[in-house]
Amino acid sequence: MAFVSLNNLVVEYDDFRALDGLTLEVEDGAIGLLGPNGAGKSTLLKTLLGFLRPRSGTASVMGYRLPEQALEVRRRMGYMPEREVSSPRVSAVSFLAYCGRMFGMTRADALERAHEVLNYVGLGEARYRPMQEYSTGMLQRVKLAQALIHDPKLLFLDEPTNGLDPDGRLEMLALIRDIVDRRHVTVLLSSHLLPDVQQVCRYVIMLNRGRVIRHGPLETLIRPLDHHYEVGARPGEESALETALSRAGWLFHRQVGNGRFQVTLPENADCADLFRLARDAGIQIRHCVPLKTTLESVFIDSLDEHSPEAAHARV
């Protein structure tokens, strides 16, 4: 069963069409929702929570129709919003216990679970302090904890690494990875930070102007590029390698700093030809790996393909 199923979904804000005929099936695992600002990512999540009513089309989450059965959906999923959330005068424990009570937990159970989840997200003794004293990183952890308090099977994360320092970001991504791998929670991660999605997700959905412009498993989107390699020579032989590659017309790009080169071989050449060229020039190749597409390049290509200018050019 698909966790999320959308069929020709249209959502509008007054005259602006935020989601334009979205048709999608989301299976379990970690799914990345990518798109530039205004692509419709947050609108999609809010529609799946029942906050926004579709103009037309159908949407269902875990088999429950939206917006009619929104309450059933909310009982089973967790949501970490994009914007900073704080209940300034209460502690994180009290806030989480309150959230737990909304799911029908007893007061004692809600308190116990609040502590468990706060331990899990790594919020230490600060949990007893009023939330107005928390740093952005702490608030981000509380935001994740409130989404996990009822052990959801489906988790919507809207820009979970917003405002975090590099260490905090890595820790947050590791937590999300752990939630997916160990707790077997299906995560729909909305972000415009491509490395975050690449690090956590196995399936990617790219949105632009309210439409899906590309989707698929990460390994099919990021694939090795034919005849593209990254090569490096023995220290001191970099300039000789550059000269040899330039002379052969294979040099594509010189990477600054590490003495490595990106090369594009002709259709009829392969890796062996590269080593042959180096041997003839008296150079020893110490590094040679095939190049892969990056999520960034796939994303930019997709945006370009679906831009109005490209559509106009095709016409």
Binding site: F51, R74, P81, V85, P88, C99, M102, F103, Q146, H150
Partner: peptide, 18 residues
């Protein structure tokens, strides 16, 4: 208004609270 300023309705209404 303090709830709204602290973005709490979004969290509360993502739970089974009407």
């Amino acid at each position: 208004c303090n709830d709204v300023r602290n973005n709490l309705p979004e969290v509360y209404f993502s739970k089974p609270l009407r």
